[in-house]
Design a binder for these strands. Structure first.
Length: 318
DNA sequence: TATATTTGACCCAA
DNA sequence: TTGGGTCAAATATA
C-alpha cells in the first residue's frame, strides 16, 4: 500500500523543515511578545505569530497535493464541479487535501443567528440538503469570490437540536481563502482580531499566544494546537450592537470550538469562548447576504436584528 | 437588470 | 446502494 511514499519523502522532509522553521519563528515571536511593553509591538508580534501558524497551515494544506499530484487526474474522475470555472493559476486540490475545521456555536435566545455565525467572509449559498439523522437541513456555502478570484473556500452550516432555549450550530469550513478577503482578514483560520485600546485584549493576546505556544511546545511533533479565543471581541465594527452576542443568561452559552485537520494527519484545535468579530473586511462585497440560515424559520421567537450591515453575516469571529 | 437563493437532479465516495 | 456534496435552472429580491 505504500505507493510513492519514498519518492515524496524528500518533499515531506522539506515541508517538515519549513513548518518547523515557521513554528520556531512563531515561538520566538511569542517570547518577544511576553516582554513587549508597547501595545503596538504586542499587536505586531501577535500578527506575526498568527502569520506563522497560517503559513504552516498553508504548507500542510498543499502537502496533500504533493503527495498525490494527480489527485483528480486519472481520466475524468474529477467532478464536473470546478472544471467549469476557468482558473488559470489555481492549484487544483483534492477536497480531501484541503484543511478542514469545524466550529460549534451555541446561540442563546435573543442573539441573532446570522451574526453569531458570522466569520468575516462573504459566502454564497449554493445548496441545502437534508442530512440523515439531522433534524435540520444543512446549508452549503462557498466563497462569494470563487469565480472572480478562484477562491475555493466552502463551508457547511448544520443546525442541531439542542433544546428550546438555545440553538446549536456546527459550521464546517473547508479550504483556505485565497481571495482578497483573506488578505483583509489576515488569516482564514479563526483568530481573534485585536483591538488596541483594550487592556482586556492584551490579556487575551497573552492567552492566545501562550496557549499556542504551550500547545506547540507540548506536542510539536503532531502539530496539535489549542488556542483559546476569548470573546472580548472588537467593538469597532460598523457600530451598534454587532458584537454583543453575549447571551443574557449565563456565563457561557456561547462558545466556539474549532478543529483543523488535513491529510498530513495534523490536527489543530481552536477553542474560543465566542466569536468576537473584527473588522469586517468585505467592503466590496456586493450586497451579499452571506448566510441566510434556513434555520431561522424554525425559531420565530428569535428574530435577529435586521439592521445587521451584511444581512446578518458580515462580521468576523477571528 | 444583476445578483443571490432555492431546489431538484446528478455525481462520487464510502 | 446510500448519503453527502455540488451543479444549474428557476425563482426571488434589490
Amino acid at each position: 500500500m505504500e505507493k510513492n511514499s519514498s519518492s515524496s519523502s524528500g518533499d515531506l522532509e522539506k515541508m517538515k523543515k519549513e513548518i518547523n522553521e515557521l513554528m520556531t519563528q512563531g515561538r520566538d515571536y511569542a517570547h518577544q511578545f511576553g516582554s513587549a511593553s508597547s501595545q503596538e509591538t504586542r499587536e505586531h508580534l501577535a500578527n506575526k505569530i498568527l502569520e506563522s501558524y497560517h503559513k504552516s497551515l498553508t504548507i500542510m494544506n498543499y502537502s496533500g497535493d504533493q503527495d498525490s499530484p494527480h489527485a483528480q487526474g486519472g481520466g475524468g474522475g474529477s467532478p464536473k464541479s470546478d472544471d467549469s470555472d476557468q482558473e488559470p493559476l489555481v492549484i487544483k486540490k483534492s477536497k480531501k487535501s484541503m484543511p478542514k475545521w469545524t466550529r460549534k456555536v451555541i446561540i442563546a435566545p435573543g442573539v441573532g443567528i446570522d451574526r453569531s455565525l458570522e466569520d468575516g467572509f462573504s459566502w454564497r449559498k449554493y445548496g441545502q440538503k437534508d442530512i440523515l439523522g439531522a433534524r435540520f437541513p444543512r446549508g452549503y456555502y462557498r466563497c462569494t469570490y470563487r469565480k472572480s478570484q478562484g477562491c475555493e473556500a466552502t463551508k457547511h452550516v448544520q443546525r442541531y437540536d439542542e433544546n428550546q432555549n438555545q440553538m446549536l450550530f456546527e459550521v464546517s469550513y473547508r479550504g483556505i481563502h485565497s481571495c482578497s478577503q483573506a488578505a483583509n482578514v489576515g488569516s482564514t483560520v479563526p483568530v481573534q482580531n485585536l483591538e488596541p485600546n483594550q487592556t482586556e485584549n492584551q490579556e487575551n493576546l497573552d492567552d492566545i499566544v501562550k496557549g499556542s505556544l504551550e500547545s506547540y511546545n507540548h506536542d510539536q511533533e503532531h502539530f496539535h494546537h489549542t488556542l483559546h479565543y476569548p470573546l472580548s471581541s472588537t467593538p469597532t465594527l460598523e457600530g451598534n450592537n454587532a458584537y454583543m452576542l453575549q447571551p443574557r443568561d449565563h456565563n457561557m452559552e456561547f462558545f466556539g470550538s474549532t478543529s483543523f485537520s488535513n491529510d498530513l494527519g495534523t490536527n489543530i484545535n481552536y477553542n474560543f469562548p465566542a466569536s468576537g468579530s473584527a473588522s469586517h473586511s468585505t467592503s466590496n462585497s456586493p450586497s451579499t447576504i452571506p448566510l441566510e440560515s434556513p434555520f431561522e424559520s424554525y425559531d420565530p421567537n428569535h428574530p435577529y436584528d435586521p439592521n445587521h450591515p451584511y444581512g446578518g453575516f458580515g462580521g468576523f469571529y477571528s
